[in-house]
Design a protein around this nucleic acid. Structure first.
Length: 203
DNA sequence: GGCCAGGTGTAAA
DNA sequence: TTTACACATGGC
């Protein structure tokens, strides 16, 4: 199926809407920190508002080294507002311990982690993996979520598989920008898609 | 009171 | 390989 618009044209369409005026530079708050790992899992099937409630309780435990010291039951209480806390708490704690054990520091993790390693971790699917890679590790990976699919459907762009959406969204963007600036473009592109959906209440 | 939100894992067909 | 379901809260 051939589409009239490329992802670069859709990107420009969103840029012109000025959707990120009140967002931090890369849309997701605290880009490049361990908080992205926590947020990626807390945000699963939950509103961002509920995630911010949990972050308030976690304010003294937001680094990798302080986070791994938390007890499981203690963590459950802290992240209760984000829902699914009985599964998110153990998954987060195991993930944090695995990062520490496998990479030693969060900085090493940022530099060396692969998409495959993330996907092998319990609680991390494709969307969370790409969110952690893009917003947490400055990697040029586009996040494909239900918002992205809804947005593309508006332009009659529909695929079967997640990987096809990802390839479509990334391809023409990669041709238009330098490698060094790609992560920032993808970060903002995904952020703009989310904000556009919220604005228009797309179904 | 029902529906949805910045999904994932597992079990069954 | 696809489908169905569990997981849980806060806001409208």
């Amino acid at each position: 199926m051939s589409h009239e618009k490329t992802s670069f044209e859709l990107y420009k369409f969103l840029v012109q809407k000025e959707l990120l005026k009140e967002s931090p530079e890369f849309w997701w708050p605290n880009t490049g920190t361990f908080q992205i790992v926590i947020g990626a899992i807390l945000a699963q099937n939950t509103t961002w508002h509920n995630v911010t409630l949990s972050f308030k309780n976690l304010k003294n435990h937001l680094t990798l080294n302080s986070f791994v010291k938390l007890e499981i039951e203690e963590l459950k209480v802290m992240i209760q507002a984000s829902g699914f806390y009985n599964q998110k708490a153990p998954r987060l704690l195991t993930l944090a311990k695995n990062i520490l054990e496998m990479f030693g520091t969060f900085e090493k993790f940022q530099a060396e982690v692969s998409r495959e390693w993330l996907l092998s971790q319990k609680g991390i699917g494709e969307e969370s993996a790409d969110a952690i890679l893009c917003y947490g590790c400055y990697r040029p990976e586009m996040v494909v979520d239900t918002y992205a699919k809804r947005f593309l459907k508006k332009f009659d762009i529909v695929f079967d598989k997640n990987s096809e959406y990802k390839e479509f969204l990334e391809k023409s963007i990669r041709e238009k920008f330098q490698e060094e600036e790609l992560f920032k473009i993808f970060a903002q592109f995904h952020g703009m898609i989310v904000e556009y959906n919220k604005l228009k209440s797309l179904k």
